[in-house]
Design a binder for these strands. Structure first.
Lengths: 143, 143
DNA sequence: CCTTGACTTAAAGTTTACTTTAACTTATAT
DNA sequence: ATATAAGTTAAAGTAAACTTTAAGTCAAGG
């Protein structure tokens, strides 16, 4: 099975230009060419899915490149790659935690506006007893 | 109670330069000055916490500015602000969902490397029965 | 054969979100 | 009083991640 650059771009939800940019940055090693045109094989397609995963969990391109370079070196870098993946997992978990924290703040705001709209004004909505008590300043996750 | 720019910057986990930049972009309306120096009152501090929430849930500065401008107009924009907040809530939920999806992919990779390290090589790890079956391509969330 | 659409490159341009610099003023501590 | 720390501005600089442009090549349909 083989895929065009458009196939892969569609799978990743990016443009073909973006994919070519990734290639130029070294994120797509060893993609074959036929008459100068990129032909993605199954291994490249799978690799693109890994890239997509790292990219969509906010790993910077430079860091992804490090991972690519490690993978290129073969079995001797298995441990380094394992550490990198575990780091990224911790990263994702932290992101989810942070989003859940701010979700609560937004839900308070949602209630705030519902109450304000009911009353026709924002004035004194803050002093109305809210279903979720105002969040504690000390709990703001530090970046 | 009043706060210095540093106090607010520390609360938000940004530098004072960043806060001045936000101010210049109009995200901090009506902060008073004493001898040219910004003095944040309780209302400004609270507002900064809202900014921080929107910023850390990946709302672009331009969109935050729209929200600021609506808030400046008073009660007549309550509904618009409510819609914007609901939009952002949906946004956060989508982000969490996406992160949870990719977390599973990363956990597969984690298992993959644990197995490869045990065996000393990556070769044929893919064909080993994994605890979490390989994820289906069709399930990749589109951006 | 010819057009249309997809592919190619290198290089320049864009956007977002800061960050740094320089020159200066104000506040705090000894 | 004086040094140091923290505040101020406008403007230029930076970094990341694309995006666009220009000029071309290649493959398929009518």
């Amino acid at each position: 099975m083989s895929y065009s650059i458009k196939d892969v771009a569609d799978m990743m939800g990016v443009t073909t230009s973006t994919l070519r940019y990734y290639d130029k940055e070294g994120l797509l090693p060893d993609v074959e060419r036929k008459n100068g045109i990129r032909v993605f094989e199954d291994k490249d397609f799978k690799w693109s899915r890994v890239l997509n995963c790292l990219k969509n969990t906010n790993m910077p391109i430079k860091k992804i490149k490090e991972y690519v370079d490690l993978a290129q070196k073969g079995d001797s870098t298995l441990n380094e790659r394992y550490q990198l993946i575990k780091e990224q997992k911790a990263n994702i978990l932290a992101q989810i935690e942070q989003l859940n924290y701010y979700l609560k703040e937004i839900e308070y705001k949602e209630w705030y506006y519902e109450t304000a709209i009911e009353r026709g004004t924002e004035k004194e909505v803050e002093s109305v007893s809210s279903p979720k008590a105002t969040l504690d300043i000390d709990q703001i996750p530090k970046k």
